[in-house]
Design a protein around this nucleic acid. Structure first.
Length: 600
RNA sequence: GCCCUCAUAGCUCAGUAGGUAGAGCACACCCUUGGUAAGGGUGAGGUCAUGGGUUCAAAUCCCAUUGAGGGCUCCA
């Protein structure tokens, strides 16, 4: 992200000032509105209001129109520094502003709640009839905003100070650019992004569906999705076998006792489906596989000679995500996780942890994933005991172990507080969906707490019992999120090894139907996923159909090919190679698939 | 869960002064036998998400429920 200088840029000023102008317009329409904060954001700005009545989408047009009038007034933006007392006078009818002033007076945080080293001065910005508590910066004059380069985008709800216990405010999102062309490009880009949205492509490519009677967040994988899942599992199986993992299998249900012991119930109960009770025993559907793997580790006495023990499973889990949190395949309620738990000694930790990072890299190279950020997710003192295991010393120790391992391995990462698992710090791989929403794709976590609760131990070289560390990892995420991501990453044009249908055979006339079936049968015998299109459409229409389904290889067969035992190849990119001997094509496609090649 | 928006045929969508539904694609059948992104014809398909209400009359207006979308909160 080259946004380092964003807060100093003219664009930032334009957006910040546009936010003020929008607030002025809103206050003119709703004089009783209370206004809160309105910062620039990545592609625009927003402002949060408490309004006396619900704002409708159609109201945006009139607000936008009024904004253009205000801009045309060529108003200067003037800053004034003042005392807290003076500020309180000015905003005496604005409770949110008074709360902000109080915070500024106390120091330590700016008006958005970000920590500050020095106590901030209190300043206001004024233009036309509107005055806001604000540290700036702004444009000098509203004429520096191009009225044809702004647009109000949407209305949303947002909790005051981002806390769901607070009142929900009305947020208006807008976008603003230096030139009208920039706005146009931005809007076009949004349209393009929608085309690769996995929810749209997933439907078009017959990969998955949701059904009202099955339930929200519970995807049904269609045959094409099933093939992709198996391709990913084959990949994971190979890679994990090479990396010394053992595969295990565990049930979807367990008694309550297991989650009481693991500590998940108090921390995690909200995200779990409620228990079912039979013969006086409560059972839960599992939201994660860890406790079962711990039980497998603990099922036998372990020696330091056995370590590290790496237990892998594509485990199916169920999490009760709140209804508004569901998002296509990216956030679901049933998921199959590329899970594994590595039990190791402290001395083995760095090598094992970085072994997982290496696995990430291999996968990301294979998929050509370049836009991601590795995030060291740390605990927060404020959440100790509530969200996190209450042991500051072990938090600091394990966080430092991860930090040093990453540094020694020269792997770039960022650190973010208050994002850890309840049992330890982790490296999360952050990616962005087509429409720009951020997700954790893969994760690599340290657990310094739960092994002890499960009484897990191994006998060390001195003959003493020692508690192992546990690494939780999911490089291929869940099938749901991974496939959701891959659909968008490839815009549906998957490499051949992942494609549900790898070859479409297209006879030119029905005189070649027989030959087409023969060719398809030969490919199928070699393990290639192939379909012969014997419909009564013209060849052109069949090619179009195959292109729309993003089939990588089309074999066009006419009388010439049939006579010579050849095929004419049309590749998904539109290129053609005529008169290839069938054997040669089979050898070539088998090679591409076996190598999981990205080229076609 | 909360705020806003939305819900018409398998898909994409028309249907605003309330008068019991329409197109294209896909599908089926017939004709067409064609060289690299749509050949032609015919036909089948919807109790307009569900449940209430207003009205002589509701896809259309009102309420509730369910589901979806944009955000917030929360997370693989």
């Amino acid at each position: 992200m080259s946004q380092q200088n964003y807060p100093e840029s003219q664009l930032y000023r334009i957006r910040h000032s546009a936010a003020h102008i929008m607030a002025q317009a809103v206050l003119e329409f709703y004089p009783k509105a209370k206004y809160t904060i309105g910062p620039p954001v990545e592609n625009g700005f927003y402002y949060d209001f408490e309004l006396p009545e619900a704002l409708k989408e159609e109201d945006l047009a009139k607000i936008e129109k009024r904004m253009r009038q205000i801009i045309a007034g060529q108003h200067a933006f003037q800053k004034r520094v003042l005392s807290a007392e003076q500020a309180r006078q000015i905003f005496k009818d604005q409770p949110y502003k008074l709360e902000l002033i109080e915070g500024l007076e106390k120091g330590g945080f700016d008006e958005y709640g970000n920590p500050l080293d020095v106590k901030p001065e209190i300043s206001i910005y004024q233009h036309d009839t509107f005055t806001d508590l604000c540290r700036g910066p702004h444009v000098e004059n509203s004429k520096q905003i191009n009225p044809s380069a702004i647009k109000l985008m949407s209305i949303a709800g947002a909790y005051w100070r981002g806390d769901e216990n607070n009142k929900m405010l009305t947020r208006i999102y807008g976008t603003a650019w230096e030139k009208p062309d920039d706005l146009k490009h931005y809007l076009q880009m949004l349209e393009e992004a929608k085309k690769r949205d996995h929810r749209k492509l997933g439907k078009e490519l017959d990969i998955f569906v949701f059904d009202d009677e099955v339930g929200p967040g519970l995807p049904l994988w269609l045959p094409n999705g099933g093939i992709m899942i198996e391709a990913l599992e084959d990949l994971a199986k190979e890679m994990e076998e090479d990396a010394g993992y053992s595969r295990v299998r565990t049930p979807h249900l367990t008694k309550e006792d297991l989650f009481l012991r693991s500590g998940h119930l108090p921390y995690y109960a909200e995200s779990m489906y409620p228990p079912m009770e039979l013969e006086g025993v409560k059972y839960y559907v599992k939201p994660m596989n860890c406790p079962m793997h711990h039980k497998i580790f603990g099922a036998r006495p372990r020696s330091y000679r056995d370590l590290p023990i790496r237990l892998a499973e594509y485990g199916t889990c169920y999490r009760y995500e709140k209804s508004g949190e569901l998002f296509g395949l990216m956030r679901v309620r049933s998921m199959q996780m590329n899970d594994a738990h590595i039990y190791c000694s402290e001395e083995q930790f760095e090598q094992e942890f970085m072994g997982v990072i290496d696995l990430y890299k291999k996968y990301f190279d294979l998929f050509g994933i370049e836009k991601f950020v590795m995030r060291l997710s740390l605990h927060s003192k404020a959440g100790l005991g509530k969200k996190y295991v209450d042991n500051e010393r072990l938090w600091l120790k394990t966080e430092d172990m991860v930090r040093r391992a990453m540094q020694n391995g020269n792997v770039p990462f960022v650190e973010v507080a208050d994002e850890a698992a309840f049992y330890g710090p982790k490296i999360d791989v952050q990616i962005w969906s087509a429409i720009g929403r951020e997700f954790t794709l893969a994760t690599n976590q340290v657990d310094f707490a739960v092994p002890e609760r499960f009484d897990l131990k191994f006998v060390n070289s001195k003959g003493e019992d020692e508690i192992p560390l546990c690494i939780h990892r999911a490089p291929l995420s869940t099938h749901e999120r991974m496939i959701g991501f891959l659909i968008e990453h490839y815009a549906g044009a998957f490499p051949a090894w992942l494609c549900p249908e790898q070859v479409r055979v297209i006879p030119i006339t029905d005189g070649q139907n027989e030959y087409a079936l023969q060719v398809a049968a030969q490919l199928k015998a070699q393990g290639v996923r192939v379909r012969a299109d014997l419909g009564s459409e013209r060849m052109n229409a069949k090619i179009r159909a195959a292109q729309l389904m993003k089939v990588p290889y089309m074999l066009v067969l006419g009388a010439n090919e049939q006579e010579a035992g050849q095929v004419s190849l049309r590749v998904r990119d539109g290129s053609q190679q005529n008169n290839i001997p069938l054997d040669e094509f089979i050898a070539r496609i088998k090679d591409r698939i076996a190598r999981r090649a990205s080229e076609l």
